[in-house]
């Protein structure tokens, strides 16, 4: 099969997370879902509109990928507007994975900015399911306003049931907000981890990821133990369209998940 040909997937469920954000469950119309690793993405095609990369947030209980999409452009808007039973095209999964096993025995910091939480969800679920394999587990989340926070119920469950230290900060509080306000990096002061024995998973806007990674490294976390998920214009997912290059890397093949040891120098060059 041609690497650019999608397989038809049916929207088997649609959950509205926020005004502009939905989580779709996508199930292949023929055969089982190909396996995925945490951090990988698929290319989702809205027929006639276009195709975008979307992180896989997990495997739905009834089979299929759970994928969270925020309506920001023509394609994501079309995908957010799909209804149960609609058919979209899916290619993948593609890309590198969060190496959760590498964090075994270490304190774990998971830092999410906005929708970045969707790409980290498979990591958090793994940490929650096998908490005893890891040291202290912290999840820090930054979001624009209380209304843009996704996965409320899961955040509460990860905190209350699984004992993960979950902290949320917002840029712009509303009247009801009693939590922290400001950048997610400020939450690093509110969690407990031993920097020299810490592994971190970071996903969010690039400026946020660099700020968190720099802060962690300054505190003594090895750059090779800080993973982030880099976003570039992934149009094909298979290294043939060229659009997602970051210096020598094809972000779709060599990323999206990169260690900060590899990514720091590349991200520091403006407009690379």
């Amino acid at each position: 099969m041609h690497p650019m040909t999608p397989a038809p997937y049916r929207v088997s469920s649609r959950r509205v997370d926020r005004a502009d954000t939905v989580t779709l469950t996508l199930r292949p119309m023929g055969g089982p879902c190909p396996p995925f690793r945490p951090g990988q993405f698929t290319m989702i095609y809205a027929p006639g509109v276009g195709e975008i990369p979307v992180s896989i947030s997990g495997r739905a209980r009834a089979g299929g990928y759970a994928q969270t999409i925020r309506a920001v452009g023509a394609v994501s808007r079309a995908l957010c507007q799909t209804r149960r039973g609609d058919v979209v095209g899916v290619r993948g999964p593609y890309g590198t994975a969060w190496d959760v096993q590498a964090a075994a025995g270490l304190d774990v910091v998971v830092a999410a900015g906005g929708l970045g939480l969707a790409a980290l969800r498979p990591v958090i679920r793994e940490l929650a399911a096998h908490g005893s394999r890891y040291g202290r587990i912290s999840l820090i989340v930054g979001t624009r306003t209380p209304a843009t926070l996704i996965y409320h119920r899961e955040l509460a469950r990860w905190r209350d049931v699984h004992g993960i230290d979950v902290q949320v900060t917002v840029d712009h509080p509303d009247h009801a907000w009693k939590g922290p306000v400001g950048l997610v990096t400020r939450l690093l002061d509110r969690i407990v981890f031993e920097p020299r024995r810490t592994f971190a998973f970071v996903c969010g806007p690039e400026a946020m990821m660099r700020a968190v990674a720099d802060d962690l490294v300054r505190r003594g976390v090895a750059a090779g133990r800080v993973l982030l998920s880099v976003e570039r214009n992934m149009k094909c997912g298979v290294g043939r369209c060229g659009h997602c290059q970051l210096g020598p890397l094809f972000t779709c093949l060599d990323g999206p998940v990169l260690s900060y040891a590899r990514a720091a120098g590349l991200l520091a060059v403006p407009e690379l």
Binding site: M4, N233, K235, G242, H243
Partner: peptide
Amino acid sequence: CTTVEDATDFTGSLAERTEVWDSCFTLAY
């Protein structure tokens, strides 16, 4: 390098995708 073009027929029920040469000199790239 390539990009893709998407089109539908008049009714919107038939969608087609075409790959075309592209260039890193464009802004959209």
